[in-house]
């Protein structure tokens, strides 16, 4: 471009129309324009890079929220069972694994239900559907007489206190983690929940007590301590339905026995579902559901199941000394 300017300028100077100074100025202008064009082209490159990244972000943002979340809480019918399953089936997407098949059960309020069964028999899936962490593929799950799809998610999850299999804690202090259950809980309520969860003892022995830091995933606590903290977290919310998903697996028997005692005392009409591998844990429940291959194969008290359910007998035989198993 400079070449053209000079050539044209030469012609004009020859013709007396321009002076050298103007030509110099023109060269300057030409350079400035080029510079600006350069910046624009750089911008285009940057823009292309940004668009590629933006597409990735949009991919996540555009993923439809899978569940419809109703606005208002419906009025639950009086006297409805706490939890009810009507012919529910479920398969996890993408695995073709039929986790639950035609499960039907009704759990009245205030009942304590033990849930026992083999690996992959559907126990955890069962409790996941109650809190609507997944949608049943067919059939209907009801909480307090209302299908879970009709409860606003916030309300539904407020009714369910979940203590998951894997004790999940987050960076923060012990008190903060327990407060997840209820953000407005005062220290008294936190302490009470911790006492019931058999956690208060070891917390008080920590150098900073309830203000002790929790590292990522609770790595600075032992497995049993983590579980007790998550139990405290669920308890502080005082939910009407408490679900313990194999939540005492890392606890020794003495601690677990004390925990059961504490839960019973603070029960107050709470519906409790205890998922466990141990007969000792579920044995004293009002009712035990035995899962196998995604179906409920046994439903009754410990004594009744010993008589009538082969699967349950087998489990007891392997865990209890022979004479107990025949009680």
């Amino acid at each position: 471009m400079v070449v053209l300017v000079l050539w044209a300028g030469g012609i004009d100077i020859q013709a007396g129309r321009l002076s050298q100074g103007v030509v110099i100025a023109f060269i300057n202008y030409a350079n400035q324009i080029l510079l600006a064009l350069l910046i624009v082209s750089n911008l285009i490159i940057l823009l292309t890079k940004s668009m590629a990244s933006a597409a990735r972000v949009n991919e996540v943002l555009d993923t439809p929220a899978e569940m419809a979340d109703p606005e208002r809480a419906p009025e639950p019918p009086a006297g409805a069972p706490a939890v009810e399953f009507r012919d529910v089936s479920f398969a996890y997407a993408g695995t073709g694994n039929r986790a639950l098949e035609h499960v039907g059960v009704s759990i009245p309020k205030g009942q304590t239900v033990g849930i026992i069964g083999g690996t992959g028999s559907g126990k955890t899936t069962f409790v996941n559907l109650i809190g609507r962490f997944y949608e049943a593929t067919s059939g209907c799950v009801l909480v307090e007489g209302v299908p879970v799809g009709r409860w606003p998610l916030r309300t539904l999850r407020g009714k369910i206190g979940l203590v998951p299999q894997h004790a999940a804690l987050f960076t923060g202090t012990v008190a903060e983690n327990i407060r997840w259950g209820r953000p407005d809980a005062g220290m008294d309520e936190i302490r009470a929940a911790a006492v019931a969860a058999q956690a208060d003892g070891f917390i008080r022995r920590l150098p900073r007590g309830y203000d002790s830091p929790v590292e990522r995933g609770g790595a600075n606590f032992s497995g049993g301590q983590r579980q007790r903290l998550t139990i405290a977290r669920a308890l502080v919310a005082d939910p009407p339905v408490l679900i313990l998903d194999d939540a005492a697996s890392a606890l020794d028997f003495l601690t677990e026995a004390r925990l059961r005692e504490a839960l019973r005392k603070t029960g107050r009409g709470r519906t409790v579902l205890v998922v466990s591998q141990r007969v000792g844990t579920v044995r004293g429940a009002d009712r035990i559901l035995v899962f196998d291959g995604g179906r409920i194969v046994g439903d009754g008290t410990h004594e009744a199941l010993l008589r009538e359910c082969a699967a349950y007998r087998e489990i007891c035989l392997s865990q209890l000394p022979a004479k107990e198993a025949r009680a």
Partner: peptide, 9 residues
């Protein structure tokens, strides 16, 4: 501890 006693046996 997370396995049913049948499998565990």
């Amino acid at each position: 501890s997370s396995i049913d006693t049948g499998t565990e046996m």
